[in-house]
Design a protein around this nucleic acid. Structure first.
Lengths: 340, 340
DNA sequence: GCAAGTTCTGGAAACGTTACCAGTATCGTT
DNA sequence: AACGATACTGGTAACGTTTCCAGAACTTGC
């Protein structure tokens, strides 16, 4: 393997000069620069990253810590983020966690061990105190999630997300405006300062706004976002105990898909007997029978913002900031107006 | 940041001794070993990976090169692979490529630049010559794909996959046995030594076995595996020119989903007017209306085999080997027997 | 009691880079 | 003509490990 010394010798210059060329340092004449660059080409020289990282005491990798990778929406998002990160010359490391794991501590440990330069948190919750956050000594961004619980100062963290609570509120409001009153919610368990909790809150907001009391019987809960089987079962149970519901709000597209199947297997037709609305806007949802009415998250924009934010923070080009994106209603065939 | 010298000083031993403890070298007394380990705990020492990699001239990361991450089947698989790789103490780096890119050269370059210890190729094609393969100087595994074109000696590469050709053959045979004769295929363009080509071959095999001539008009082609819109359009076009088909074989579940929608929008009901069968076995496919009849790939086993194989190769514990997994038919409601 | 192991330990040279410091040559000012 | 500034270059000490070599302290066998 040819190294920096080899090409220094080959060109008759010092290693430091070669290093300068490599790092686009201004203090080098066009003549030598060209000579060195030619040598790099000819000898197929590739800088050794480990050596670089050693002296710079960091790496060039950003970690993406994901809870619940099997959520198709996350898969889409990961794709965009990876593309953006590599396009800007950094590299991405993927880590999955179980819901029970403590993302903050894992992140902090990883950052030390692997000399990460940034962390993206995707999924899960993030109810930490300022002291806990201080454990992480690299920039980080909460993807698809905002700490809106007031426990954190907005200068203390960055986030990129839709307004989950507002989106849920919008979806359920829509059902109300179509005449529905008995509206069930399909959510996952993990209602501890997570996306799920926010969407749950939005559901309650809508109920309250329309003077309908919250009824715990109308809640179908599962442990995971994307365990289709569990979602199916939970919906079946819901229908068994509350057969008169006319609409279901699912906090994610995948959940809606399982719910529609459960409805069908219970002899209920969507949207004639029961309407279904969700949040996420997977590509796939547009190709179901019936097509799913859902609030589309702008996944491209979100991904670009996640990558852009973390890189700006790393490069010292920006302050902590919270981005909120708008969802767009995509009307499908899973919702209908209820006649009085 | 505390380093190896600090804990050497703290214990009153040499750095080399600490290094030996760190690497489980036998030549160290139980007493010193314990002393050093305690110091590591107390001082929260974390070895510097860059320094390690520098002297060992490698890293500890395996790269996963993916073409078409938006294929949900791949997402599932990536999850399993990531879990297995990290569980065995290595780390995984995700790289996406466009279909037009040359995976081999990108892999070779990446391996050098980033001092990778192994590469997993996922998706795409792999029709390279032995000389080209020699460009990659680290172990690699073809995931979900086998080079069955005879151009490569089986000792030259490792692979983990289902028998794509056989599976396709099985699916189409099934349609024949139910009385179907006019069977269309829904595939992607990239039929150049890829999974798609194999499945396409299987389709032709089945036709031949039943004495039916291949008809190019019965082929609906798209550029990408998972561009739902394109698949939908292609199916619509197919139906417009060949309205009398009674069955469609889709080479992937996502394709089948778009196809079913296209059928429905063309006034055809699945399975009454047209049967649909696919390969992949996504969880989701079991929750569609109608549920999809599909050949399930054992994704857990495949992922474990991919990770296991690459790690064994890296650790010098195994030869190149090709694994073939069996698919399992999951009968759904998208297929019906054709009355004579 | 001595040579020939064995078991453990320390010292120091690598690994390939960057960053700093010191220096030389060139140039424009006064 | 002398001066400081500017543009460039070379030498070298880090960065934190591992690995090799040498040696010390013990055993063992005769």
């Amino acid at each position: 393997m040819t190294n920096i010394k080899d090409i220094a010798r080959y060109c008759g210059v010092a290693v430091s000069t070669v290093s300068r060329v490599l790092n686009d340092h201004p203090d080098v004449s066009d003549e030598t620069r060209e000579k060195v660059q030619r040598a790099i080409e000819e000898l197929h020289y590739i800088p050794n990253n480990s050596a670089r990282n050693l002296v710079k005491t960091t790496s060039d990798t950003i970690a993406l810590l994901v809870k619940g990778v099997n959520n198709p929406f996350f898969s889409r998002l990961i794709k965009v983020i990876e593309r953006e990160i590599t396009a800007r010359g950094y590299s991405l490391e993927l880590h999955q966690m179980d819901t029970s794991e403590d993302e903050l501590r894992i992140g902090a440990q990883l950052a030390n061990e692997r000399k990460l330069i940034g962390i993206l948190f995707l999924g899960g919750r993030f109810n930490y105190t300022a002291e806990e956050i201080a454990l992480i000594n690299v920039p980080f961004v909460l993807c698809t999630y905002t700490n809106t619980f007031g426990s954190l100062d907005s200068a203390a963290y960055s986030s990129v997300a839709i307004d989950d609570r507002q989106a849920a509120r919008f979806a359920v409001d829509m059902l109300f405006s179509l005449g529905h009153r008995k509206i069930a919610i399909l959510a996952d368990d993990q209602t501890d300062k997570s996306i799920s909790e926010l969407r749950f809150q939005g559901y309650k907001d809508a109920l309250a706004a329309h003077g309908v009391a919250f009824d715990a019987n109308l809640v179908a809960c599962t442990r995971s976002f994307s365990d289709m089987r569990a979602i199916y079962r939970a919906t079946k149970d819901l229908l068994a105990r509350e057969s008169s519901i006319t609409a279901i709000f699912a906090i994610a597209d995948v959940m809606a898909i399982a719910a529609i199947k459960a409805l069908s297997d219970s002899g209920k037709c969507v949207p004639d007997d029961c309407s279904v609305v969700a949040i996420d806007g997977l590509d796939l949802s547009e190709y179901l029978l019936p097509t799913l009415t859902t609030l589309v998250q702008p996944v491209e924009e979100i991904g670009i913002a996640c990558a852009g934010t973390i890189i700006d923070l790393i490069e010292g080009k920006g302050e902590n900031r919270q981005y909120t994106f708008e969802t767009i209603l995509r009307e499908g065939g899973s919702v209908r107006k209820l006649e009085a």
